[in-house]
Design a protein around this nucleic acid. Sequence first.
DNA 1: GATTGGATACGTGGATACAAAAATGTTTTT
DNA 2: AAAAACATTTTTGTATCCACGTATCCAATC
Lengths: 224, 224
Amino acid sequence: MPAAFSAEPPRTSATAEEEAYRHIQRALRLGRYKPGERLIPEDIAAEIGMSRMPVREAFRRLASDGLVVLRPNRGCVVAGLTVDELYETFEMRSVLEGLAVRLAMPRIDEDELDELDRLLDRMERAGKSGSSDWVVRHQEFHGRICALSQRPKLIHQISALHAVIEPYMRIWFDDVDKPLSAREEHAAVIAALRSGDAGHAEQMMQDHILGTAPMLAEFVTPSR
Amino acid sequence: MPAAFSAEPPRTSATAEEEAYRHIQRALRLGRYKPGERLIPEDIAAEIGMSRMPVREAFRRLASDGLVVLRPNRGCVVAGLTVDELYETFEMRSVLEGLAVRLAMPRIDEDELDELDRLLDRMERAGKSGSSDWVVRHQEFHGRICALSQRPKLIHQISALHAVIEPYMRIWFDDVDKPLSAREEHAAVIAALRSGDAGHAEQMMQDHILGTAPMLAEFVTPSR
DNA sequence: GATTGGATACGTGGATACAAAAATGTTTTT
DNA sequence: AAAAACATTTTTGTATCCACGTATCCAATC
């Protein structure tokens, strides 16, 4: 999970399984493994310096998150998204983040709006230095709003959806010349928040998210 | 997952882990274990006739589903819901099932509406014979509508949320003298579907689900 | 030459064994 | 007598080992 979505329960001690989970998830988010590629437990275990067992258990959780597919006796492969699945993920994001915005509204004051403006600036500046920074800042922006909803499970779900689409966000951002429209889109969301109308803000967030999907859809490999 | 939500990929071969997962999930849904109760891997393993290992892996998935809590070196305990978490779960259900209804709308015809009427009748009849049947029929009703959305991941998520609240639905249904209002509630949803207005149907579904939460909230043990 | 059958090698799943950590009960000390 | 420290027991986490299922490769046959 990204720092932006800090919904995870505070882990007291780091077990090997936890380390494997974080390691693999991070690699997947960065697009180090391509969709369809097989993940060999032994290799990853050797990489982190542990046995296969904790890695296998990490696979289960990653499969629950939808990041890998686990077929009996056939190992673990990176879960690519079809175009349909990408749209579906954005549909779910739209209603869940819409809900988050609506619930966050009572807690949004002038200070918070200023902070969001600052995050928007950081996002734009990061956009000039590459996809990695921009994607992180972008999640930070969405994460900040979601956090205000004060709904741990909701935040967790949204975070999981972001993890699934992150690789595609990176590809998209690297390929297209840096989207300046992104600033306007997010500025519009802030404006809606400033209006104080929860229903309107929810609608704006939904529109923003659903509007992003078609841009990414082009970069989904039509394989599978 | 209940038969009503058949979003799971058809399992070809049944691994031990899969069997353990289904076994424990079923037990949790039926309320066989109380919230806070510890799940002993060895006991469950012996019960199904396998070693601790597959059970441990099943625990990981159940934790991802939010059905149990897994703390390092402290084992696996059944995840009870606080009142806040119960409301949060219903909030998420409301927007996700609302989305499902909206997306299902184009595929709802007269035959489908008749089928839903039939399911409503079965639900009411089942209500006279105990909570077990009613809860199953109730999920069947919601599952039927969700299935029409033809969104596998969405269906899966909704199904997971149902699994979390199922124990509370049973307690509520057993305690309160059988809620006749439930029929009217669901009939209203069907009526909204009949109207053909996707937005209206979505709103009705949201209202229906959010309206249910306060009734269950009374039966959440204030512990934790 | 293509397709099917079988043998072999590989990888996954599960069980047992071992190590580390936490919980419990007992003893000792203040 | 109460509290703290220690030892014991229980339980969890990890590693190694074995068996079975799957894939691959080669040969035989059509």
